[in-house]
Computed example of a mutant assay.
Amino acid sequence: MTELLVAEKLAVGYEADPDILNDISLTVSHDEIVAVVGSNGAGKSTLLKALIGLVRLRSGSIRLDSTFVEGMPPSEFVKRGMGYVPQSDNVFESLSVDENLEIGLRSRSDIALRPRREELYSSFPTLAERRRQKAGSLSGGERQILALARALMPRPRILLLDEPTAGLAPRFVERILDQIQAINRSGVAVLMVEQHTAAALNISDRGYLLRGATSEKARAIADGATLTIL
């Protein structure tokens, strides 16, 4: 498969603190689901933030297709086809479902709002039933579905998901993972950070295990997915 996202030898840290991530490399191919798993505090969320431009790199490079994108603002990443769903604060609670989806298109004036929103309501019928409802009144699982739909509004080629099942009841965990697979089948690559390791690897083509700020090459097989230990 052709590589869509390529990160090479990333070093990431905050202000004067030591590197949180060091010498980290990963790839995501077109139409692939890739999981990043690891213990709390290993730097998984920081990795996603670095890949979308929310945290500056100290060194290393990020390519989207053949274009180097490191150093660009997050809005430029979105224009070039990357979507991102953070673990928390991923919906505007005081706004309606309709309004949340509209905000998802703020960086893509070339896409017509109403037709795209209706497309997503067809894919997410639960949201269509609640389109006038405030996002803050939705259940945790419904909020996560809204966050996914909003990230899909600008038609990304790859979606970065930070703990998409965190804090959800088991029935919603399965539902969200099913939805991620459906998104992938529609032609969107997915890179997700997950704490539900077995479930994440079960739906992924490959996986990365992030262990602190060090990197070593190794491989193992888990639930049919290739696990590369970072």
Rank of each mutant, 00 (worst) to 15 (best):
L4Q: 02
L5V: 08
V6I: 15
V6K: 15
A7W: 01
E8N: 10
D17I: 03
P18N: 08
P18H: 11
D19H: 11
D19V: 10
I20C: 06
I20Y: 04
L21I: 06
N22P: 00
D23M: 05
V28W: 01
V28H: 00
I33K: 02
A35E: 03
S39G: 07
A42Q: 11
K49I: 13
A50N: 08
L51F: 12
G53M: 09
G53L: 11
R58K: 13
R58Y: 12
R58N: 11
R58Q: 09
S59Y: 06
G60K: 07
I62Y: 04
D65V: 08
E70V: 01
S75T: 06
S75V: 08
S75K: 07
F77W: 11
F77C: 05
V78A: 15
M82F: 08
G83R: 08
G83D: 11
V85Q: 05
Q87W: 05
S94D: 12
D98Y: 14
E99H: 06
L101S: 07
E102N: 02
E102F: 10
E102S: 13
I103F: 15
L105Q: 01
R106Y: 15
L113V: 10
R114N: 09
R116C: 04
E118A: 06
E118H: 05
E118G: 00
L120D: 04
Y121M: 10
Y121T: 02
Y121W: 13
S122T: 14
F124I: 12
L127K: 05
R130H: 14
Q133M: 15
Q133D: 03
Q133A: 11
S139Q: 08
G141F: 13
Q144F: 12
A147K: 04
A149Q: 10
A149D: 05
L152K: 00
P154A: 09
P156W: 01
P156N: 03
I158P: 01
D162F: 10
T165F: 07
A166E: 14
R175F: 14
I176L: 10
L177V: 06
D178R: 11
Q179R: 15
I180K: 04
I183F: 13
R185T: 13
S186I: 11
G187M: 14
A189E: 06
V190G: 04
L191N: 05
L191W: 04
M192L: 15
E194D: 04
Q195L: 14
Q195A: 14
H196R: 13
A198F: 13
A199M: 15
A200K: 02
L201P: 02
I203P: 01
I203G: 07
D205N: 15
R206D: 06
G212F: 11
A213Y: 05
A218V: 06
A225G: 04
T226H: 06
L227Q: 01
L227S: 03
L230E: 02
